[in-house]
Deep mutational scan, measured.
Amino acid sequence: MKGKVVSYLAAKKYGFIQGDDGESYFLHFSELLDKKDEGKLVKGSMVHFDPTPTPKGLAAKAISLPLE
């Protein structure tokens, strides 16, 4: 699924993505496929991810940034 980063707290390594389906997904650095892309996780960045339901809500897994 595609989505847009709505927040990312680099110090805490987490944030949120708004998916194309309108839902909010929890984003964690550990799910970023290329850790070098962390600096690109800023508000408004477009990402691809696997939407995954968890006991705490919806989460983004296997997060990647589109090729530039």
Rank of each mutant, 00 (worst) to 15 (best):
H48Y: 15
P55G: 08
F16W: 14
D21M: 03
G22C: 08
K61R: 12
I63L: 04
G44Q: 04
K13W: 05
L41S: 01
H48K: 12
H28T: 07
T54R: 06
S30K: 11
G57A: 03
L41A: 02
L67K: 14
G44H: 05
K13G: 11
K56L: 09
E38K: 04
Q18F: 10
K13R: 11
G3Y: 00
V47A: 05
P66K: 12
K40I: 05
K40S: 07
P66Q: 14
A11N: 12
V47Q: 00
S64K: 11
V42N: 08
P53A: 13
L9G: 08
L32H: 01
K4T: 13
H48Q: 14
D34I: 07
T52W: 15
P53I: 14
P53C: 13
E38M: 06
P55D: 10
L65K: 04
T52D: 09
A10D: 08
S30H: 08
K4Y: 14
K56A: 09
P55T: 10
G22E: 04
D20L: 09
K36M: 11
L65G: 04
K36H: 12
L33H: 05
A60R: 00
G44V: 02
K4L: 11
V5Q: 00
F26A: 03
S30R: 10
F49C: 02
K40V: 05
A11L: 10
V5E: 03
T52A: 13
T54P: 02
P53E: 13
K56T: 08
G22W: 03
P53L: 13
Y25H: 01
P66D: 15
D20Q: 10
L9R: 12
E68P: 12
S45A: 15
F49H: 01
F16M: 06
E23R: 14
P51A: 11
E31Y: 08
S30N: 12
E38C: 05
K12D: 07
D21I: 01
G39Y: 14
E38L: 07
H28Y: 07
I17L: 05
K2F: 13
E23K: 15
L9H: 14
D50Q: 15
G39H: 14
P66C: 14
Y14K: 04
K36T: 12
F49G: 00
S45P: 06
P66H: 15
E23A: 11
I17W: 01
A10E: 10
L41D: 01
K35W: 09
D50C: 14
V47D: 01
F29W: 14
S30F: 09
A59G: 05
D37L: 09
A59K: 14
A11E: 13
P66L: 15
L67M: 13
Y14W: 12
K61I: 09
V47K: 00
E38V: 10
G15R: 00
K40Y: 09
H28L: 06
E23Q: 14
Y25T: 00
L41P: 01
D20K: 05
S30M: 09
V47Y: 00
S7M: 15
D21Y: 03
Y8P: 01
K35H: 09
P51K: 06
S64M: 11
F29R: 08
K36S: 13
L58G: 04
L32N: 00
F26T: 03
V47W: 04
G22A: 05
S64T: 13
L65M: 11
G22I: 02
E68Q: 12
L65P: 03
K56W: 12
E23M: 13
K12L: 12
V42F: 09
K4A: 07
P55Y: 09
S7L: 14
S30Y: 09
I63N: 02
F26Q: 03
Y14F: 11
F49E: 01
P51G: 10
K2S: 13
A60Y: 00
D20A: 11
Q18L: 15
V5Y: 02
G3I: 02
V5A: 01
F49W: 01
D34V: 07
A59L: 13
V47T: 04
F26C: 04
L9C: 15
L33I: 12
G15V: 03
Y14M: 07
L9Y: 15
F26E: 03
S45Q: 15
F16H: 04
V6K: 14
Y25F: 03
G3V: 02
A60H: 00
A62P: 02
G44N: 07
I17Q: 00
A59M: 14
E38Y: 05
E68C: 12
S64G: 08
G22P: 00
M46Q: 12
H28W: 05
F49R: 01
V42D: 05
P55E: 10
L32Q: 01
L58M: 11
D37H: 08
L67D: 13
F16Y: 08
G57S: 03
M46L: 14
M46V: 15
A59D: 04
G39E: 12
G39D: 13
K56Q: 11
V5M: 04
K61D: 02
Y25K: 00
V47I: 07
G44K: 03
F26V: 05
D20P: 06
K43P: 14
L67R: 13
E68K: 11
L67W: 11
Y14S: 06
D21T: 04
L65W: 06
D50M: 15
D20S: 10
T54I: 04
D50T: 15
K61Y: 09
K56H: 11
A11P: 08
D50H: 15
K13E: 04
E31P: 00
G19R: 00
E68V: 12
P53Y: 13
E38T: 05
K56F: 11
F26W: 08
V42W: 08
A60N: 02
K2Y: 12
D34K: 06
G15W: 04
F29N: 04
M1A: 07
M46C: 13
G39V: 14
P55H: 09
G57I: 02
L32S: 01
L33F: 05
Y25S: 00
L41N: 01
I17G: 00
S7F: 15
